[in-house]
Design a protein around this nucleic acid. Sequence first.
DNA 1: TTTTAATTCTATATTAAAGTAGTAATTAAA
DNA 2: TTTAATTACTACTTTAATATAGAATTAAAA
Lengths: 135, 135
Amino acid sequence: MKLSTTSQYAIRVMIFISQNSDIKIFHAKEISEKLSIPYKYLTKIMSKLVEANIITSTRGREGGYSIAKKSVNIKMIDLVKAVDDSLHDTTCVLGIGLCNENKKCALHDEWREPKESMLNMFCNTTLKDVSEEAS
Amino acid sequence: MKLSTTSQYAIRVMIFISQNSDIKIFHAKEISEKLSIPYKYLTKIMSKLVEANIITSTRGREGGYSIAKKSVNIKMIDLVKAVDDSLHDTTCVLGIGLCNENKKCALHDEWREPKESMLNMFCNTTLKDVSEEAS
DNA sequence: TTTTAATTCTATATTAAAGTAGTAATTAAA
DNA sequence: TTTAATTACTACTTTAATATAGAATTAAAA
Ligand code: SF4
Ligand code: SF4
């Protein structure tokens, strides 16, 4: 019961970028080393974040990545959706999902609460929330 | 954010067996067909359930599988742990897990509630709860 | 005792995620 | 204009989960 490695990487990258707002541009090499994420794998993830308009990239010499909007406007769910949507709502814990409200197994309702609670966490938490040290 | 296919299969098998308590012995072929689970994959899972003393097996002609204890005494977490522990407690949503109570990211606490809520669901729900039609 | 129907064991195949490699494209500095 | 530093693209490799195949083992029925 965890996020994919890809999603975890994406979140860690964004936290890193957000926490170093004095730095305006980040290089893949630098991020890769600082966060111990395989370089080539990282660049793939960065491209997805660019595609999703969360990161702006500048190619060529003196290029790099920078954050595309304020961290308060980036929801955690956006990050996950941008890279692999590994917490895509599954509705059914058993992977069936065909039952309806009238005929359902006990897990259906049991599962709903924690699932929604988890989804809400990603929908209602912004990158800013996560990046700021808990007071 | 879902259970592994293996865990889903295990749960579905146990619900099926529990809901058909008039039948005393089940054959792999029968379960496989009824639940559309690949035969050979199913038998592997059954072996794990046998190993975990959740299922009793009888080899040879007229053999098969039967439930080893009352469904009220089988926790859902036991099923998952028996086959692949796919909801093994991850502590850290980012796969780092080295931070402590004094230095932690915002996700640490955000994550705790839904995670524990989900884990509790599997610890406190028995196969009986899940097998009985919601009233 | 032989046959048959079942589980169990060992090995292999397929698939998707994770990770790696090399080249192309871009851009600014030299 | 050449070179160096960067991201983007395309293809391949590795790994782990899922799935399949076939032979070995067991035990009751015939
Ligand atoms: S009732 Fe149970 S099996 Fe059916 S969709 Fe809901 S969780 Fe899945
Ligand atoms: S503080 Fe954040 S990164 Fe550290 S263990 Fe907790 S969830 Fe993981």
